[in-house]
């Protein structure tokens, strides 16, 4: 791999204040990711996967060390700049789809573009194209409660992908899906990764997910114990 990394992490520590001292959820993390990687954090529960994703996602701040995204050091960003980073560069997929139940699939997917102040006609084109990718064009007017779990997760992926983010952070995206839906969701993500050169970073226990990964980073007690390339 070569070129300027899209994400680079140096000497990262994250501690939480606890009764009787600090608890280090992450310690001495050094990592970098290139554009269009399809990588995953694996490891036992409590090993710090979510904590790391949240730090990269600007949802939380590092205690020591630095994280750079596209050359920007996250610790230097104001809350407003961090929000802008999330709006323009990052996309999140959660264990639960977190679609807004009172809005239709179309409206849910359109929301990020509203925030980016896109023109109505551009929004419509982008939303329809993305829903076509994830195979939900016939559910445009449905509300999330009327969809299956897999369809919801695909709608959530569409919501992330519609604005073409550089990086997608997915925290256990298949945890609530059966095998068949897990595969279809993962195939969709893999295709987007290849077609749009989007960088994907997962956190997962799921063997099905792990098989799709190009790079597997294993965490234990907040430390990286293994970082291997697979499938290549």
């Amino acid at each position: 791999m070569s070129g300027e990394p899209i994400i680079s992490i140096h000497h990262l520590n994250k501690k939480f204040p606890m009764a009787g001292g600090n608890f280090y959820a992450l310690s001495q993390i050094n990592l970098s990711f290139q554009t269009a990687e399809f990588a995953g954090l694996v490891g036992p529960s409590g090993s710090g996967k979510t904590t790391l994703l949240n730090l990269i996602g600007t949802l939380d701040r590092a205690s020591e060390g630095e994280i750079k995204i596209l050359g920007k050091e996250l610790g230097q960003l104001s809350t407003k700049e961090a929000a802008e980073m999330r709006m323009k560069v990052l996309g999140f997929i959660f264990q639960t789809h977190n679609l807004l139940p009172i809005y239709t699939v179309y409206e849910n997917v359109e929301l990020p573009l509203l925030l980016l102040k896109w023109q109505a006609s551009d929004r419509h084109k982008a939303v329809m194209k993305t829903l076509d990718w994830v195979g939900l064009t016939d559910k445009v007017k449905s509300r999330p409660p009327q969809l299956s779990g897999g369809q919801c997760q695909r709608a959530a992926i569409a919501r992330v992908m519609v604005k073409g983010p550089g990086i997608v952070l997915a925290d256990e995206p298949t945890a609530n899906l059966d095998a068949e839906n897990s595969h279809s969701v993962l195939q969709t993500m893999k295709r987007l990764n290849q077609e749009l050169k989007t960088t994907f970073l997962f956190s997962t226990h799921d063997e099905k997910v792990i098989r799709y990964l190009d790079r597997k980073i294993t965490l234990e007690d907040g430390k990286i114990i293994e970082d291997e390339i697979q499938n290549k």
């Binding site: 809350t79 802008e84 925030l115």
Partner: peptide, 11 residues
């Protein structure tokens, strides 16, 4: 939370 994740600032 979702809207914040999508990049809306708290303000």
């Amino acid at each position: 939370g979702v809207r914040m994740a999508l990049g809306e600032s708290q303000g």
